[in-house]
Design a protein around this nucleic acid. Structure first.
Lengths: 336, 336
DNA sequence: CTACCAAATGTAACCGGTTACATTTTGATA
DNA sequence: TATCAAAATGTAACCGGTTACATTTGGTAG
């Protein structure tokens, strides 16, 4: 390991020569396929051992035409919802003998296109993408490479590619209805930048559409804990006091909770707070945050399974809707 | 995209035939290297266009011997410290034309070995690994594939492979000394399972070694928000009341903070709380959590740069220590 | 002892690019 | 118009495996 430097890896022909057999025989030993006599097999094995032979992935890929890699494009890794999803995706792919190449797009469609090109150029057999805002160049790329593409994080059967995810619109509407059912009349919605992420904009639109009868206002902010805190600070500073706060992400809900606490406003007595994503701390915070459990792990598994199936059978995968569940905790209460 | 099914991708010879030139000429056009007459170049370009030609990554890799991929092994993706690190690693590698293949080991050395094999077998040119507990099989693997390996997350110049990271021992000692300097005499240390992760065990050992004069006890728990909360619950239930709590991870500090709050114990007036990792919420929580900033992003960048340099020059990378800084916030205060 | 079949092994083409070297074309100069 | 270097293009080997097909070997039945 010290200096692994200039050194020529032994190849199959070297092994063959060393073992006094033909390349075909060595290949057969490697693929434990055909019958090779025990004596020969052992001779080959020891030649492999002696030369430290390691088969070349590229050569194998070249004539099988299969690279056994899948590319994933995600906006970021630092959101635990994506991390959980990727974790599951990787695990399932790995079980099936595929490796996962990850590329981060920062939610920028142009970056997505160029990273997608990089992945395809690298020879991935398929792509899994979070988000649905693509450049036309991206579509052209897919067209050209003729590779299966799966979209995750939202469900939309009419999309250009099969989608596996939850119905962000329905879920956001459910959340609004949940608060309405509790008797809330004035609602502030804290959300991240809608132009970066179509999941976010779907949630916003649906919340707005479900507003019927409620007084609802929207507070755009950044997609992090500090964002939630800032939004609340501005809200309170502006003198408004909604009876409930709907945060379209739990990170923001956490920040909101902290800020309300800092301002001495009691949750849920004075304001109810509801989050989205059911991140791990939401169950443990004081008070626990009512949230919506998104099946990130299931999504990763399903995506992996669908894509591999697509590759195996050549049959386009079909879209799949996953259920989300409202988890009621202490941060919301009835209002009358 | 509908049925991308049975379809033979055009290859370089097809293009050559279609454009009435030789394969060498096509290759030259592709690599924009040598001079090709404008007329010919255009003819080739349009043949490429017409046939939807896409060069094969495998073939290119085969004769260049370079796959342009790097493998990363991490215990998990769901810890934001790893996510930040990977994010940076990916970005830097991508800038240099390398793709990142991620494999998750769950902190299990045997899994690490088998995933490492998978990556090497896939043809990665180098490995970046978080953690330092390897099987001997892993070392043998590296020996055999003769591939550069870099260890991150801790600094240890005498390790078998170059390490890039922070000195967990020194940092933990600093944390203890910081609390001692504030006048704390009784200290409880909340930490994750030491057997899964050598960074954790290094921190524990160093804290213990730095205890001199302090009354210190250790509370093992799980590595998540709930773990911090549970540890505090048990601590308080057992009737102990240290003046300060050192959590060897911010996720645990957050859980501890919530639980203390739930129990009506004021931070920092009754108990000071100190964390580790400076996660994003630590600045925003109420009170803000005193923590230690670990340079995860810098670590990712440095690791990428070192590895690529190693690949380019053939010169083994050297270990590198990164600085960590204590960020003092409202969760700790002087004790007398 | 020969014929014959199965098992074992070998030969060579092929996957799809790159590239050293050979050959042809172009165009400028004498 | 002959000459020659530079530019353009072509030929074929090579990277390291896999595999269809050919050949050799071994054992058994006739």
């Amino acid at each position: 390991m010290e200096d692994y430097g200039p050194y020529k890896r032994a190849n199959l022909r070297d092994v063959a020569r060393h073992a006094n057999v033909s390349v075909a025989t060595v290949s057969r030993v490697l693929n434990k396929s055909d019958r090779v006599s025990k004596a020969t097999r052992e001779r080959v094995q020891s030649a492999i051992e002696a030369l430290g032979f390691v088969p070349s992935a590229a050569a194998r890929t070249l004539n099988s035409g299969r690279s056994r890699t899948i590319g994933a494009l995600v906006p970021t890794l630092t959101h635990s919802i994506f991390a959980r999803y990727l974790d599951a995706l990787e695990e399932e792919l790995s079980n099936q003998g595929y490796a996962l190449i990850v590329a981060v797009t920062d939610g920028v469609p142009e970056l997505e296109e160029s990273k997608a090109f990089g992945l395809l150029d690298m020879g991935v057999e398929g792509l899994v993408i979070s988000g649905n805002r693509h450049t036309s160049g991206f579509d052209a790329l897919v067209e050209r490479f003729r590779v299966p593409v799966l979209i995750t994080s939202f469900f939309e059967p009419s999309a250009r590619y099969p989608t596996i995810g939850y119905d962000n619109r329905a879920i956001a509407a459910n959340a609004v209805n949940f608060l309405r059912a509790l008797g809330h009349k004035t609602l502030s919605v804290i959300h991240g930048p809608p132009d970066v992420n179509d999941r976010i904009s779907a949630r916003i639109d649906a919340a707005r559409a479900a507003a019927g009868g409620l007084s609802m206002n929207f507070l755009p902010t950044t997609m992090d804990v500090a964002g939630g805190a800032n939004a609340v600070r501005e809200l309170i500073a502006s003198g408004q006091r909604p009876s409930a706060l709907l945060c379209l992400s739990d990170v923001q809900a956490l920040g909101a909770l902290f800020e309300l606490q800092r301002q001495g406003i009691s949750v849920p007595d004075e304001i109810s707070v509801m989050g989205f994503d059911n991140l791990e701390w939401s169950a443990v915070s004081e008070p626990g945050i009512t949230s919506i459990e998104l099946p990130a792990v299931e999504m990763g598994q399903k995506a992996a399974a669908s894509l591999i199936d697509w590759l195996k059978t050549g049959q386009r995968a079909s879209s799949m809707a996953l259920d989300a569940t409202i988890i009621e905790r202490a941060s919301t209460k009835e209002q009358n």
